[in-house]
Design a protein around this nucleic acid. Structure first.
Lengths: 219, 219
DNA sequence: CAGTATCCTTCCAGATACTG
DNA sequence: CAGTATCTGGAAGGATACTG
């Protein structure tokens, strides 16, 4: 036998065939990391505590084979490798957000041993976006712990991206990852978070309102 | 140790917490079965070839504990037990459809050993529904292999349900599960399927058009 | 930095036998 | 019918050491 067969469900069904590819342990969490931008091997390892390097390598190899991700050099001269989603992998965004949205509702208070990362808060932000609440093109800057990202509204489309906004943001939101995830989970009232300074929104009052509506924090 | 701890990711993140509950093998397929209506133990076993009775029992027990499903007697007098989704479990519908929609795009021609079930075609139908194409209240009857179900459009909402329509349907669609899944996967042209009689749509031409649009089969 | 290689543990598949 | 209980080989997962 040249190559052993992967375990699969053997069902002619969209869900089953999806799970044959992304159903194994850790796989969807790797996709989650890449949904907020390309990552290096060690970054992935650092953001997926407990994965074990062999499994990470296995999963990455399989996902490259399957065409969900690809390897690319960071720049022509450097030999630092990055992993990034292909178009097919990017196609999982809606599905991942949908699952994450459901999972947000399960969250209790963080346990002492729970790990949190700013980029997971980014995912929470994205899962919370209500497309019906888009009013005007603008950008909001978020500073979550040590990471900066922004929401860009462009012609009715909403993108959540890493790094600073492309232009002067209408709003600057400063918070920590736990606070943001808790708000997303509906466990923490945004007003309360604001009053206790766990969440700080600086900017025009109207922009604060628009952003709050976009994230479903107020009606 | 009274009760061993389930393996979990230990991440304070919506996606990770969702996967702690529904990430294990077979779990989401059990949810899929229940999304098209309550099932008995043996039905589940029959529709999930390969699961093994102990594993199915384990999963069901866990899902009941977690509150995603519940057990109920079929009728007060009979002692036939059914499993059905709780409201929380029902909350997974969008997420499951979203994953299934992505997975449909992966499907190749069915392999000889692949299993197909009419209810998976029901899922495909539901995943294909384009809410933007809803025009008027009506119902469509589907006969896939030996199962009957229908799409009910009521005030802009679309429901896919088991059994016969509540009133005279605008359309009767007859086909087999493989054909329907293949159409959903974009592998089979609906016109071709119609011409080869693998798919038969009986009804008013306008209704055929509306239904085809609803399922994204024509623009 | 970006992985292999190794070893050990846990989970899963499949079979079978049993119970209320 | 609707499960529980037990067993076994094999596959997947986890921890750690090592390498170009």
């Amino acid at each position: 036998m040249a190559k052993q067969q992967r375990r699969n469900y053997g069902q002619y069904c969209g869900l089953a065939s999806a799970l044959d590819v992304i159903g194994e342990r850790w796989t969807l969490l790797i996709i989650r990391e890449l949904l907020t931008g390309p990552c290096r091997y060690n970054e992935l390892q650092a953001n997926l505590p407990g994965i074990g390097t062999n499994l990470l390598a296995d999963r990455l190899r399989f996902l490259v084979e399957t065409g969900l991700i690809r390897q690319r050099l960071m720049s022509p001269e450097s030999k630092i490798k990055m992993y990034e989603l292909t178009e097919q992998g990017e196609g999982l965004r809606e599905a991942v957000l949908s699952v994450a949205r459901w999972g947000l509702g399960l969250l209790q208070a963080p346990a002492a041993e729970d790990v949190v990362r700013p980029r997971w808060a980014v995912l929470a932000v994205e899962a919370m976006v209500d497309l019906g609440a888009v009013v005007q093109d603008e950008q909001y800057e978020f500073r979550i712990d040590d990471e900066v990202f922004h929401i860009a509204i462009e012609g009715g489309r909403v993108a959540v991206r890493h790094g600073k906004p492309d232009f002067d943001p209408a709003l600057l939101v400063t918070t920590d990852a736990v606070t943001f995830v808790e708000i997303g989970a509906g466990r923490l009232n945004p007003l309360e978070a604001t009053l206790t300074r766990r969440l700080v929104m600086e900017g025009d009052d109207d922009a604060v309102l628009r952003c709050s509506r976009l994230l479903g924090l107020v009606r």
